[in-house]
């Protein structure tokens, strides 16, 4: 796989306060990478360093082989919306297109960012969600190979969000690489190839969601049965045991083992359901156990 972003031994301090410590990772082509972390974890600082907006104290960053014109090949959707007075959507898009040698066509940008009917609107009159879509349009205007998206769906309505992530999935099919941060983890769960968790100033997890589940995943097993609870109480690896009427609910990190233990009683068990944890709860669990992952 070709690595288009390489970060090695990156450290960043603001004065005496350490923000990022020994960050190392590679980003391969044609991936969607989600960077997650609590508020103030340093996600935006890390992105700003990658974009050369601020410098690191030590370490190296290599984006697209540090080509002189690497800005031709990146697109950035910052956390803050761009809202210039006395300019229309069409004018700012045409202006941004003019910065690049091979931009997307105007019609394509409008279609991908879902800005139909807003072309003649003044930028500062757009709603929060519309401004977000315009920021996305500005990020893709140059037809970039590598997209940085910082909280892209904040303040978007649910319909726009669904459409936005569909567009990102389509862009990946066109061999684009996407580096995204978001607080909407349930959205990242469905699209990200890889998750990086920024915690305690470092990347404490870097892998697929499946790998995170293996590490942190809790499953919930539910069923209805008239059997007595004593039969199940001593099954190993049950973290949480609940019984309401005939309804049982177990929480475990080893669903397979529990199902095995239940097999002899399957005749007396109805409505058996096994539910895996969402990325949201995986992230919460991961953070709870933060220190153990260092």
């Amino acid at each position: 796989m070709t690595s288009i972003v390489t970060v090695e031994h990156l450290n960043k301090n603001y004065g005496k306060k350490e923000i990022l410590h020994n960050i190392n990772f590679n980003v391969n082509k044609n991936q969607i990478i989600a960077l997650i972390g609590e508020n103030g974890a340093g996600k935006t600082t890390l992105i700003n360093i990658l974009l050369d907006l601020i410098s690191s104290n030590s370490g190296t960053v290599n984006i697209l082989d540090n080509e002189k014109d690497f800005k031709e090949r990146i697109g950035v959707m910052m956390q803050q919306n761009i809202s210039i007075t006395r300019i229309t959507v069409k004018e700012i898009l045409k202006l941004t297109q003019s910065y690049y040698q091979s931009p997307l066509t105007y019609e394509k940008i409008i279609e991908l960012a879902d800005l139909n009917d807003l072309e003649d609107s003044k930028m500062d009159k757009l709603s929060g969600g519309q401004k977000r879509r315009l920021s996305f349009a500005l990020a893709i205007a140059g037809n970039p190979d590598l997209l940085f998206l910082d909280e892209p769906t904040a303040v978007m309505d649910s319909q726009s969000r669904t459409k936005f992530w569909q567009t990102i999935t389509d862009l990946k099919k066109q061999h684009k690489t996407v580096f995204v941060t978001s607080h909407y983890l349930e959205e990242l769960e469905t699209i990200a190839d890889r998750i990086m968790i920024l915690q305690n100033k470092s990347i404490s997890f870097d892998g697929s969601i499946a790998q995170l589940r293996e590490l942190e995943g809790e499953s919930i097993i539910e069923f209805d049965s008239i059997l007595l609870p004593d039969l199940f109480k001593d099954i190993p690896e049950i973290i949480d045991f609940k019984k309401v009427g005939d309804h049982y609910k177990f929480t475990t990190k080893n669903a397979e083992l529990i199902i095995g233990q239940l097999t002899p009683y399957l005749n007396a068990i109805n409505n058996l359901k096994v539910q895996q944890n969402s990325l949201d709860s995986l992230f919460v669990n991961f953070n709870k156990e933060g220190a153990t992952h260092e």
């Binding site: 974009l51 800005k71 950035v76 761009i82 210039i84 941004t96 910065y99 140059g142």
Partner: peptide, 9 residues
């Protein structure tokens, strides 16, 4: 607007 320009070529 300033930062938008800085992120482009």
């Amino acid at each position: 607007f300033d930062i938008l320009s800085r992120l482009t070529p």
